[in-house]
């Protein structure tokens, strides 16, 4: 679980060296990492530690700061919910005085609270509210300028939904699931469910979710199990006398 988060299989050796070595502090490497971020955006990959390395460079070298990159990193991190990736990214964003050297006004101060809000809705599993907010007019600029570029953004959010749903439900109404996934038409929903390998009941109103570790419950009585090595201390003590 955590292994692919620490080192995603898609990470190249070059990036691995940057992320794990001292070279991560070298400002001249920021370009490589930024390119890698845009690669992630195009090809639906995700590498949190590499993106944190960019933010680290920005933290130490305020003149490298590129608001578009930061926003893209945060957008990518949204899809990792409920893991704390989004907050980890925010932790590295030191507050900065308004940067006069940028040609255009910095979009981050405006978008940061918006992204915060979206993250909060996702984290609290308020999926219908998330989609309402995301589709709202206020967020047009976020959609038009950023998420549209991020391949599979909406699907990455749907994956967050799926993770929550499949661990909580054994069966869920299609209406509810459609609302969570923001898939209004039955055809869209049907094809999405098929892709997951989930099945509909005969009336087509309820989705059956295959059993997995989290949605099977049983009342267990936890018994202690003591192995011999744990008792070596006691036995050794007794043997000595």
């Amino acid at each position: 679980m955590a292994a692919s988060w620490i080192t995603p299989p898609t990470r190249t050796e070059l990036i691995e060296n940057l992320v794990s070595g001292v070279d991560r502090y070298n400002p001249s490497n920021v370009g490589i990492l930024e390119d890698y971020l845009y690669h992630q955006i195009r090809s639906q990959e995700y590498d949190c530690l590499a993106n944190l390395a960019i933010l680290k460079l920005y933290q130490f070298n305020p003149d490298l700061y590129n608001p578009d990159v930061v926003i893209n990193i945060l957008i990518k991190a949204l899809g990792a919910s409920p893991l704390p990736d989004f907050n980890l990214c925010i932790s590295l964003l030191d507050e900065r005085p308004p940067n006069a050297s940028l040609d255009e006004p910095d979009p981050l101060p405006v978008l940061l609270p918006v992204l915060h809000g979206l993250h909060h809705l996702l984290y609290r599993c308020r999926f219908p509210a998330f989609w309402r907010a995301y589709r709202s007019d206020q967020l047009e600029s976020l959609r038009d300028n950023y998420t549209v570029e991020c391949a599979g953004f909406e699907d990455s959010i749907r994956e967050v939904v799926i993770r929550a749903v499949k661990s909580t439900f054994t069966r869920i109404g299609t209406d509810r699931l459609g609302l969570y996934l923001d898939l209004d038409s039955p055809e869209e929903l049907k094809s999405y469910i098929d892709k997951l390998g989930w099945t509909l009941n005969s009336e087509g109103t309820v989705v059956n979710i295959p059993a997995n570790l989290d949605n099977q419950i049983e009342a267990v009585v936890v018994q202690e199990s003591i192995k011999l090595p744990q008792l070596t201390k006691v036995i050794a003590q007794a043997a000595r006398s």
Binding site: A3, F169, I172, A219, Q223
Partner: peptide, 27 residues
């Protein structure tokens, strides 16, 4: 490094509109 584990003794699942609850007890 690490793996996902359950941290609760109270487990539940929702079957459409019914919640089923199971509790783990310590022997």
């Amino acid at each position: 490094a690490g793996e996902m584990i359950s941290t609760s003794d109270l487990n539940f699942v929702i079957d459409d509109n019914t919640i089923h609850i199971a509790e783990s007890t310590v022997g």
